[in-house]
Amino acid sequence: MTAPLDVSGQELQAAPEAVLDGAQGKAIEGRSLGQIAWTRLKRDKVALTGAGVVIFLILVAIFAPLIVSWFGHPPNDFNQDLISSETLAPKDGTGISADHLFGVEPVNGRDIFSRVVYGARISLLIAFLATLLSVAIGTLLGVMAGYFGGWVDSVISKAMDVFLAFPLLVFAIALAGVVPDSAFGLSGDALRVSLLIFIIGFFNWPYIGRIMRGQTLSLREREFIDAARSLGARGPYIIFREMLPNLVAPILIYATLLIPTNILFEAALSFLGVGVRPPTATWGGMLSDAVRFYTIPHFMFFPGMAIFITVLAFNLFGDGLRDALDPRAR
C-alpha cells in the first residue's frame, strides 16, 4: 500500500505536530443510554416545547396563591359591581381589564383568571397521583404475571379483563354521588380529591398492566435473566433488581401519556357534577357553569383552552419521550 500523493505526484508526509496531536488527543468517551436518549430528545423541538409547557403548568399550580395575589383576585370573591342587574352578565360584555385578565363570571363576578389558575392545582394533583397509583399497581401485577406465569398469570390476566370490561364512568358517577360529605376521616375537598384519585387510579391499572406483562414475557427469556437464575437469584431479586430497571423506559412513556387521559377524566366528572364540589375551582366545573351562558364565550373559552393546552403539551412530550427512549418504535 503506497502513501497518498499530492498534485505533483510526490508522496505526502504528515507533519510531526499533527502526529503528536493525534497521539495526545482525548480518548473517545462512551455514552450511557440516558445520555443517548437525552441527545435524541434535544433534537425534537416539539417535544421540548411540550415539556416546557408542562413545567410551566406545574409551577403555576404550585405557586397559584402567589400568582393570584399579583395578577388576580381571590377565586371565590364576588364582584357584583361588575355585573349588570338586568342581564346578569358583565357590564362591558366580558369584564376583561388590567385587574381581571380573563374577565369575570356572569351572575357573581368571580375572577376567571384566578379560578383557572387554582383549577390547575386540582387537575394536575388528581392526574399525577392517579397516574402514580395506576402505574404502581399495573407495573407490579403485570411483572408478576409475566415472570411467574402459570396460575399467577391466569388469575391476574382474568382480573385485568374484568377491570377493562368495567363501566368506569358509570361507576365513578354512582360512587362519587353516594359518598357523604364526611367519610374515612376526611371531609370537604380532601375527601373528594382522594375519592377521585382512587376511582381514576385504581380502575385504570390494567392498561399499563398489560403492557408490563408483555414486556416481562420478552425480558424473562433474555440471557441476563438466565445468568441471574444460574447464580441462585430468586424471583423477587430478579423482578426488582433485573427486570424493573429495564422497564423504566416504557413506564415513563406510558405515564406521560396516561396523565392527560386522567386530566380529561377528572374534567368530565367535574363537568357532570360528581367531581370536586363548588365553590372550589376546577376546569370541568367552570365548563359546566359556562354551558348556561353560551352567549358569553369567554366564560367557556379560558377553562377549555387550559384543558386543551395541558393535554396537548403532555401528549407532545410523551410522543417525543417515546421516540427518544425507543427509537425502534418510530
Rank of each mutant, 00 (worst) to 15 (best):
L272D: 06
R330T: 04
V135D: 00
S85W: 14
T261K: 15
S157Y: 12
Y294N: 13
I208A: 00
D326R: 11
W283D: 00
Y118I: 12
G142F: 02
V53W: 10
T282R: 00
L48P: 04
L186I: 09
K91R: 15
T131C: 05
P65K: 09
G177Q: 11
R220Q: 12
A329N: 07
P16V: 03
D226L: 14
K45C: 04
T282D: 02
A233C: 10
V116C: 05
G320E: 00
D21P: 01
S218Y: 04
F78K: 12
L124P: 00
V7S: 12
D92G: 04
R292A: 15
W70Y: 09
S8W: 10
A23W: 10
L287F: 06
Q10N: 13
H298E: 03
S218M: 05
R322G: 09
A227C: 11
G285T: 10
K45Q: 12
R40D: 04
T2D: 11
L186G: 09
Q13P: 01
I239R: 00
G284Y: 01
F63K: 06
L258T: 08
V162H: 11
G275E: 08
A190Q: 14
N76V: 14
F78G: 05
T49E: 05
F56W: 10
G273W: 10
L41M: 08
D77N: 13
M305P: 04
N204H: 09
P65N: 07
G9E: 12
Y147E: 03
E266F: 07
G9N: 10
D189Y: 13
L33G: 14
L217I: 02
L59G: 13
A23M: 13
V274L: 06
S154E: 12
T310C: 03
P327M: 05
V19C: 09
I67F: 11
Y254T: 02
A290D: 01
E17H: 13
K42R: 14
G52P: 01
D289S: 15
L66M: 09
P278A: 08
P90K: 12
D319M: 03
F163M: 15
A290P: 01
A98Y: 12
I238E: 01
A281H: 00
T2M: 07
R31T: 11
M212Y: 09
I96Y: 07
L132M: 14
A228C: 06
L257P: 02
R115P: 03
F301C: 01
I96E: 07
F163Q: 15
I199N: 01
A172I: 08
F293K: 01
W205S: 03
D44C: 11
G146P: 04
S85L: 15
P16W: 08
